[in-house]
Amino acid sequence: MIEITDQLVDNLAELSRLEFDATQKSVIKSDLQKIIQFMEKLNELDTEGVEPLLHISTRTNVLREDEVKGSITREEGLKNAPATDGQFFEVPKVIQK
């Protein structure tokens, strides 16, 4: 079974861009441990000879024609922007020049 270490929690937090203080971290750790334990239950099933399920969808080929439609205006699009000049979404500087 996967052992939930502080380092694993830190890595996952980093990948998810989340931050936890020490108390939160220990709660998360124990939650994760429980989740993993729960999933481990699946290992008890004998899947010998069962086709692996690649995708949960029961339908295939749900496709649309190549048509331009459904766009909204820029004003509407920028409504929830954290900051905007009316043209762009503005975010904190990503790279230092």
């Binding site: 043209q87 979404f89 503005e90 975010v91």
Partner: peptide
Amino acid sequence: IHDLYPDYTCI
């Protein structure tokens, strides 16, 4: 777009 404004990156 990183070079339009000094304090923001434009998307």
